[in-house]
Design a protein around this nucleic acid. Structure first.
Lengths: 343, 343
DNA sequence: GCGGATGAAGACAACGTTGTCTATGCTATT
DNA sequence: AATAGCATAGACAACGTTGTCTTCATCCGC
């Protein structure tokens, strides 16, 4: 009877087939630097192929040590912003670290976020990238902090892609700096009366951007009206409509996300308003929506790809758990599209 | 000294703290239906909380049996089509099966798809949902078949969300039926001369839809011109431009995906062509792009959500590995938007 | 030719859990 | 009152791997 008949061949089966000990087979197939006689090595390799041996990562992981599984918690898989993050992290995991990323979609629900974190703890992942900011309700922030502490205590490396008032390294752009960059851009282009459509005010990043932006604008005699809305195209369209009523002669609309800007542009165009001739529009994030918009959206590149990669690289670095790193400030830059005009 | 100091407390620590045997602690914390004295139960629960016990899913998984981890291989995370699938599967995994889904992004690369499948095999996941169709190059189909066979042999339940000439249950819409539905819709609305922009011809589903559609159209005296392009908005825009040159008087543009349709609409509108007054446009998939398009796209709902859920439910069903099921044909329906007019 | 040094292969415990088997104490039955 | 029967708790092997320890043989120098 052929050994091939074994359902899920293990090292023991390989060793038996090759006529060597378990240890020897293990050493060969693990590519350990341990010295093994070339003849035996060959025999083991042949036997492994013959029985169809596939290493069991679960057993390896139980045995101990880093085994290359990280968790990624994202806010909303269908939001281009988080999609980019998920893409960059999973890609980097595969190409640079031959690692798996378990993607958890928290569906904009803070409670689900905590549930996923606990599950990832049970799963003993090597590290976790939290990219669930933007939907904080602050109703469960205490629980979140507690869960993160528990994770850190157990030796899991936790990082965040947004500043969220949790004690972990953060890989994110500087919200204040972005606020100022946008405000400067507005002033430099001569706009004096603008509308601002931001995401929910409960979000820390939004608040920081808003404060930096408005204080700069005030200092440069720019009139502005602000509305806080959901960060979706639909809300953006409604927001633009209301802004037109409330503040009819603004010349630029500054949006807190590309999604909002996209919706706003759709609405403005359907009202026959020319962009950017009559109203300039600016987004944030340089997501896929910026490219999909016609005309192409003027927006701010936030380097989500770089942030995701940097976060993963940090987790995978050998000294991550002992490191006192506070993360990295990710740079941003204005992407000039076709939706912004000088006055 | 408090037991709390233990880094990663195990059942042994809990048992020690509670003054019971390992087995008893295990039985309590696993919620086994095994009878345990209420007093001991209480003691164990208290001890578990005191030491901060968290079950180790890796050990559980090694021990054997289904443990709730499935793999999902998707074609392109940033494509709305696959995004919907990823969303529905991860959501269903969490809500209905308290399961993890490892999302693998094959980045439109057939070789990477195989690499991921092998890695999922090493990981001994309970099941795998392959949603990587659409990018088949056929250059590596043999390897794919071999890998899938290996997976099945090892006891992994494999299903596909697209028909791909691999011997696994398929949960997908009937491509021929969709082709006919679309063709019928065109005929019923009185169009006589149309343009067709489909995805890459190497794709089986595309081919089936195309054949069914064209044969129906021919049978109803409808003139058509076909182009096969990439399934992206950018390609859709270029495709529409070429179609205008090649076939200037068509009255409807039938697209093989919402992405193509979105790009086509953008281009047509920027050329000053009124939609649907001058040209009607139809997409496929009813993805987020259909909603984002202005005017709202007329398209075909393919129930990706239902397909993903059905596939996952199948994997999680107890008899999945022994079942001879061939999957499920997912229904489709035309979604009437604002981009299609009757002549 | 013998002792020590070197190199390669085998034995074995451990990772944390679970199911089975065994041991024990208790109740119920004749 | 003795034993069968039952309920409950503990002991233990197993899952597949890896690192360490041990064993064994070979080779070299004296």
């Amino acid at each position: 009877m052929d050994q091939r008949d074994v359902k899920n061949p293990t090292l023991v089966d390989v060793a038996k087939k090759a006529g060597v000990s378990l240890s020897t087979a293990a050493r060969v197939l693990r590519n350990s630097d341990y010295a093994v006689d070339a003849r035996l090595k060959e025999k083991v390799n042949v036997a492994a192929k013959a029985v169809g041996y596939v290493p069991n990562l679960v057993a390896r992981r139980l045995r101990g040590g880093r085994q290359g599984v990280v968790g990624l918690v994202i806010g909303d898989m269908l939001d281009a912003h988080y999609g980019m993050i998920a893409e960059s992290v999973t890609k980097r995991a595969e190409t640079a670290h031959s690692t798996f990323a378990i993607v958890c979609n928290m569906q904009r629900d803070p409670l689900l976020e905590i549930k996923y974190l606990r599950k990832l703890l049970e799963y003993r992942v090597d590290g976790i990238i939290i990219a669930g900011g933007g939907f904080d309700q602050w109703t469960h922030h205490g629980e979140l902090v507690e869960t993160v502490d528990e994770l850190k205590r157990s030796g899991t490396v936790v990082v965040s892609l947004m500043p969220r008032n949790i004690q972990v390294p953060v890989f994110a752009a500087d919200s204040e700096a972005i606020g100022i960059s946008k405000a400067k851009f507005i002033v430099e282009n001569g706009h004096k009366k603008i509308g601002i459509l931001l995401g929910p005010a409960r979000n820390d990043m939004t608040k920081q951007r808003m404060q930096a932006m408005t204080s700069y604008l005030s200092g440069h005699m720019v009139d502005y009206a602000i509305a806080n809305i959901d960060s979706t195209p639909e809300a953006g369209a409604r927001g633009a409509a209301e802004m037109l009523l409330r503040n009819p002669d603004f010349t630029a609309l500054i949006c807190g996300s590309d999604a909002i800007a996209f919706g706003a542009i759709s609405h403005l165009r359907s009202e026959g308003i020319e962009i950017p001739a009559r109203i300039s529009v600016m987004g944030l994030g340089n997501t896929r929506l910026a490219t999909l918009s016609t005309p192409r959206l003027t927006t701010v590149e936030m380097n989500f790809h770089h942030a995701g990669e940097a976060a993963l690289d940090f987790i995978m670095s050998d000294n991550a758990s002992s490191s006192q790193s506070s993360g990295e400030v990710i740079g941003h830059s204005i992407v000039v599209g076709e939706t912004f005009a000088s006055l």
